[in-house]
Amino acid sequence: MLISGKQKAILALLADGQFHSGTELAETLSISRSAIWKQLNGLADLGLQHSAISGKGYRLVRPLELLDENNILAAVDEKTRALISSFEIHDQIPSTNTYLVERALENTHSGAICFAEQQTAGKGRRGRHWVSPFGSNIYLSILWRFQASPMAISGLSLAIGIAVIRALKVHYGDTFRLKWPNDIYYQDKKLGGILVEVSGESDGPCAAVIGLGLNVYLPETEAAEITQLWTDLTQITGQQQLNRNVLAGTLLDQLLFVISEFEAVGIAAYLDEWRRYDCLKDKPAKLFIGQHSYEGIVQGIDDNGLLLLARPDGSTQAYASGEVSFNSQHTLPEQIKIPSPPERGLG
């Protein structure tokens, strides 16, 4: 379902979480009260619940902070802001990553930014889907062009994880961790994920689309089919209303700083910091690569960002890719499942 202009206008009025009468809404939007009722009923399809009380009017069950370009950019440093070539916020989009991958083929400039309130066919690693309720979380993608080859920026996703941790520390303290190769964790529960898609010649240059999905508020009903432990910032902080625009701006600021310097400094500049946040180190884990799995004790990452796994035979192997399961029961694969149709996801 696509959000209509009338629904967007109603959401803007109801975003404060307060009651607004049908008469007030109708007069403000110059439509009938029956049209207001019809549009409100359609909001449930976006995962937005509202209540109606006679004599008081309508209100959203939960206040809503819609993304706003000016409010986001206000949290971005002036020097970092100069790196942005274009800035878009979509109400709904299939995938922020797919959108920028397509724009990269059209020679869109480096520094293109895409946010979305909701994704309808977004993706995580290996084509997986990511739960993306409307107006609740952060769905962000950045297009960046490198002169280096795809191989030369192979550690980029680890550096992106550092940027996310730095942004979270600004607002919520030093409590977040990183799970190799591209997940944000809090107390062994997944808070967010990173997806880097690279295209270009084998010897360079290349274009990278860096996607981030971060749970700010994930309704239980939306997350019912997730098959791994998850959390969101609302649960972590105990705050019912978080400033999503300020967080989005801080994330964008940190991400652009790291991305812009990565080609010059490489993964070596981030190894020590990444290791401080490693949530897998010294834990028993199972690594899945295609149809094969490998068990062992995680020994951290090597100087190239590869996962080190101490095997039962006494050897230690380095792995460039794979999916790691490290929960105590070893029963839940590190993946997301959501209902289909419709499909929802991370960009």
Rank of each mutant, 00 (worst) to 15 (best):
A116P: 02
W180T: 00
Q39T: 03
K286T: 13
I160L: 15
G47N: 03
S51Q: 12
L100N: 07
S202M: 11
E106K: 15
G135Y: 13
Q240T: 10
P63T: 05
I165S: 01
S95I: 05
H109N: 09
N304Q: 14
L229N: 07
A12K: 14
Q7F: 14
G127A: 01
E78H: 13
G42R: 01
R275A: 13
S325R: 12
G322T: 04
G57E: 02
K189Q: 12
L346W: 13
I72K: 09
K123N: 13
H171M: 13
I301G: 00
T231P: 02
I84K: 06
I113M: 01
G17E: 10
Q119G: 10
V258Y: 05
A167T: 04
T108C: 02
V258N: 08
T237H: 04
L229G: 15
P133C: 11
H50A: 12
K189E: 10
I259S: 02
S132G: 11
N70W: 12
A104S: 14
L13K: 13
N137Q: 07
K337D: 10
I289Y: 09
Q39A: 15
L212M: 02
A224Q: 04
A44I: 08
L11R: 05
E88G: 07
L67Y: 06
A15C: 14
E263L: 08
D77A: 11
D232C: 05
Q235M: 06
V61H: 06
S132D: 04
Q335N: 11
S86V: 07
H129F: 10
L212V: 08
K190F: 08
A104L: 07
A121W: 09
E201A: 13
A285M: 07
Q147C: 13
I162F: 06
G266D: 11
S315E: 03
L11P: 10
D183N: 01
E27Q: 12
A12W: 08
L233F: 07
S32A: 10
L73K: 06
A269K: 01
S132W: 03
D313L: 14
L307A: 03
L25C: 05
L309D: 08
R59H: 04
A208K: 00
Q299A: 10
R166K: 15
E24T: 14
G22P: 05
N107G: 10
V258W: 09
G347C: 04
S293D: 09
I84M: 09
I3M: 14
G161E: 06
Q39L: 06
I3F: 12
S34C: 00
L83I: 07
T120G: 13
M1C: 14
F257V: 03
A52F: 15
D313H: 09
V298N: 01
L332V: 13
G290S: 05
I153S: 11
E323H: 11
Y186A: 02
F87R: 11
Q187W: 02
S32P: 03
A112V: 00
